[in-house]
Design a protein around this nucleic acid. Structure first.
Lengths: 222, 222
DNA sequence: GTCCGCTCTGAGGTTCCTCTGAGATTCGCG
DNA sequence: CGCGAATCTCAGAGGAACCTCAGAGCGGAC
């Protein structure tokens, strides 16, 4: 276990009074709090920094909270997220969760409940870790990089997706067709699979992915 | 036989009491149980870990059970899956199975029946796996390699086909003519059979295939 | 707009697989 | 034992599959 990591929290909240309140609240719980006042800066911060958890208000200027989550998920950011909302209908809840949020708190909320849900979120997320075993090293899916060697190795979105698939099914052989369907949405990208296998090998060593001649590829660590 | 492998089971169940009950039940049967309490964490765990089998409740928060299975199948996860449901109409059953679940148990269920179905599921799935016995080791036909020794041994396409034929009929003697017809499509490849027998022996040991002088070859472990 | 990184294409070079053929070795039989 | 036949061993040719990489296209950041 890595144990006592920095627990940095991103709060995206436009209401100044509520933002200040929550900031104090979360800080008091031991989080390092980063506040963004609208969807755009929230998006930017979330894309350029690493957070343990995000708390996002649904009613935001510029980009709506649910939309923000959706965009982040589309970008491969899987940081656990809690949405604050004034509305509490079933459709709202479904929409938020479908967008990729992990939890949903309706305003006005009990402070204790909010904190409890946040703890649960964090616990659940670190329990079901975003790490995939790669033998000596491991892939941090969320951060999109491979750590465990001398120096962490950053991956692009595609590289990350591809390696994630292999690492999740270490003994399975994937044909190029399967990989194209599962990783490259576009059915017409014949050489892309080979190229990305090449990229991963260049970054991580020739043995990360093995060729099964005439069939496809599979993970290196059997 | 490979025998006592790790049989890890993923249970996705939101009801705490039922989850605890099933956890104990499955653990008692020798499974290593992993519990997810909602669809999202279930999805995440299933994508980042490997399970022998999954048991998923149909009525889940966040992502419904059937939907969860559908998403997993779309992602290329083929782990055999059993769905628990309160409803038992024909449409429900069809929907669940269409989504890619292998079996369907209606609550309230008999514990013994559930366990029996689970065993059947596991057995069916491993049976249909493409493994052929080779005595100490076994041939994984789909992965095209022999495992069970210190190090897995990769086979080429032809080597794989040839060994597959022998392993599927351990006591039968094959003439060179038969082998040529069955494994080598080109009828005019007189020496190829001998060469590939030689390749297999070089990779797997002299005894994998025995020569029957004047007749042909047969499997080593008669 | 300009820059930069990501994605994918396509062409050339390389590796791997398949099968051939020839010499060395073993087998069976007198 | 001695001989012919069957089998084993292995280097290498030909071709398919694969690897490598420069660069075009595109979209987002500033």
């Amino acid at each position: 276990m890595t144990g006592a990591e920095h627990r940095t929290l991103l709060l995206v909240e436009d209401d100044a009074k509520l933002a200040a309140l929550l900031d104090r609240l979360f800080s008091g719980e031991g989080y390092t709090v980063d506040v963004a006042r609208d969807g755009h800066s929230g998006l930017h911060r979330a894309l350029t920094h690493q957070y343990a958890v995000m708390v996002i208000d649904r009613g935001l200027p510029a980009i709506e909270g649910v939309d923000l989550v959706r965009r982040l998920r589309a970008k491969g950011v899987t940081t656990p997220t809690l949405i604050l909302t004034a509305r509490g209908t079933t459709e709202d809840r479904v929409e938020g969760l479908d967008a990729g949020a992990e939890d949903y708190v309706v305003k006005p909320f009990e402070i204790d409940e909010l904190l409890a849900r946040l703890r649960a979120l964090l616990r659940r997320h670190t329990d079901s870790s975003t790490r995939l075993d790669l033998g000596e090293r491991h892939l941090d899916v969320t951060a999109r990089r491979v750590v465990g060697g001398d120096v962490p190795i950053e991956l692009s979105g595609r590289e990350n997706e591809l390696l994630q698939l292999f690492a999740a099914h270490p003994s399975q052989v994937f044909t190029r067709d399967e990989l194209r369907r599962l990783v490259f949405q576009d059915a017409d990208s014949p050489g892309a699979v080979d190229t990305y296998v090449y990229y991963l090998r260049r970054k991580l060593g020739r043995d990360v992915i093995r060729t099964v001649h005439g069939l496809g590829y599979r993970m290196g660590s059997a």
